[in-house]
Design a protein around this nucleic acid. Sequence first.
RNA 1: GCGCGAUUAGCUCAGUGGUAGAGCGCUUCGUUGACAUCGAAGAGGUCGGAAGUUCAAUUCUUCCAUCGCGCACCA
Length: 728
Amino acid sequence: MNDKLTKPYDPQSTEAKIYQMWEESGFFNPDNLPHQTGKPFTIMMPPPNATGILHLGHALGLTIQDIAIRYKRMQGFKTLWLPGTDHAAIATQAKVEKEIYKKEKKSRYDLGREELLTRIADFVSASRGTIQSQIKTFGASCDWSREAFTLDEDLSLAVKTMFKKMYDDGLIYRGSRVINWDPKGATTIADDEIVYEERQAKFYTFKYSADFPIAISTTRPETKIGDVAVAVHPNDTRYQKFVGQEYKIVFCDVPLKIKIIADESVDPELGTGALGVTPAHSIIDWEIAERHHLEGLQVIDERARMLTSNKNLHGKKTTEARDIIVDWLKTENLLIKEEDITQNVSTAERTGAIIEPLPKTQWFVDVNKEFTLTENSNLTSIPKGSKTTLKKLLHQVVDSNEIDILPNHFKKTYFNWINNLRDWCISRQIWYGHRIPVWYKGAEVYCGTTPPTGSDWIQDEDVLDTWFSSGLWTFSTLGWPENTADLKTYHPTDILVTAHEILFPWVARMILMTGYGLGQIPFKKVLLTGIVRDAKGQKFSKSLGNGIDPMDIANKFGADAGRMSLIVGTAPGTDMKIDENKIKGYKHFANKIWNITRFILSNTENIKYDPNFTDFTSTDISLRQNHIQTIKDITDDMETYRFHLAAEKIYQYTWHTLADEILEASKDIFNTSDDATKNSRAQLLFQILKDTLICLHPFMPFVTEELWHLANFDQNLLLVEPWPQAND
RNA sequence: GCGCGAUUAGCUCAGUGGUAGAGCGCUUCGUUGACAUCGAAGAGGUCGGAAGUUCAAUUCUUCCAUCGCGCACCA
């Protein structure tokens, strides 16, 4: 027996060495696997943001993916798990800008586009190295030779190709409308980059002028100098007689033309039941104005300051303007009511600034425009060559179960979102990211994957929303638009493992892009993971600074223990709290397996393992049957992705059956029985130990691999040892 | 407002149409040759409340309560 076994298991001195051994074997790359005839099984790793370190949420996702990949690899599948990172346009640029400002007091405008991009690239390459080593520390058996980055040259070509295809099909258009403007980041942001905060506010009810017949209510009086209409509900008897009339008034020294219109969207119960329509500074009002063919009037600029003919207001901050206007209303005796209310204020997730809705020219993806599904389509839920829309496509592939989402109830959440889907604003006013592949020359517009020939063409300044490129992730990483061997072999991928909070921004966009671009599904199954919270139940976040580096856990308890504690006792998709005691428990478990092996080997030193042995005693036959049944149960759970149950079963069996019962009883046998009984028991223990190490390997890969070699079952790596066939 | 989830042992959480489960904690006893990280025994739960379906409900249905989350609204 190896001397190493006489000491307690030490993960720290073992894990890095084992990972290196796996990497050197080349088996993370499916091209090198010993079983080349197997069916492919593919997972694309959700690319972490290139901004920094991973937290336990990532560790959970990585563990689930690694369990799936290792299990399938041991079953003889040709397994590809492709890792990568996301450039995360706004998040990364904001982070680097912040650091530069802190150190050098310089803004991006001081540096200029090129210099800033160089700085970001430097930051990102350092950060990617950190992320890589963290992924390795947690034992992820992914194929580093295929690692991808969303800004790589070939992935950028995929982005441009997709943009052009959508542009040519009329699914991408440039248009003016009210968007979410982040005054601090000086960029547009998407609906799902907004966080709502509850705040106290004043709700003012007033008339524009003494001779205006209807009172309105608002929390933002300063926007009212941009009003063009007052909308009432068509059935509201109080106001019906005014509908259609137009009034010329002067509001706070600003001349306005206000038309009274009737619109179904107005809630007659709220406030006075009449809504002052400010098309340029409210998304809802913009839509009302469109329905009634009214022009908007912009009165607030990009820095959230007033734009108006009233010199007293012009250039003032919106909050200052509000006070001035309220004072004016009071002096003019127009203010009817002032109430305290709590309201949800939209703020930018990345910068914290209050969102200012502004009319802007932006690029959009039209989710309701019909297009013809490619003739190459393999989708079963929509006939190839038929007409559909992106919205319908998103609905159909999940509704028909062509894509399965686990846990099941998230399907309802998904449909809820699809039904409320608006056109997707894809342009961002920042510098880091995929620049929009459109050039202008006077009134001429050119869209292409390469710049136009000829002089005087100017490229669009904006870059694309980062989700546009991550939407292509399952196939841009495999070489699309080239029809590569990898693309043919590994796409569609099998499962996607990701946090439920990015079901919409990412998962839905991947379904959209892949369905439209390739006529395929990006993945057959989505496994949504819960959010890992700290001991107080708080979400890990950069702003709270409570992130736990998975490295710390790996150092203190071992990656195996960390992995087990993230899996056992947690229902998939349910949020969980992380508890150090739990992790410690699984460190003990790693040591337990270590000592089980030590016991078995030290009691069988003159007996040779015989894989074909059948001459068991009757006691051993029944113990063996029980063991085989356990493997069967575990395999069933693995097949249905109930990893938490499989892990718990193998844990229970190993500790409380193998160790507490079988090993305890074996002490007597090895001390007192005849050779035949001893041999039967030894062969039984060998078989059980072998299968136990195999079944535990997807969950605790390091300690099992180490023991596999100390026990010397064969020369292979446990990594590629076949999963037991539980049929005898 | 619409939707989703949770409510099970002191704590953190699994699970199930047919005597209620784990880890940690707690109590008692044992253990100097597998175990610094061990074992045995034990205490502890009307499975949030009410009604219904069923031979049988913690599990399925409906309603209610409390907590959390998502979406919308926020004029």
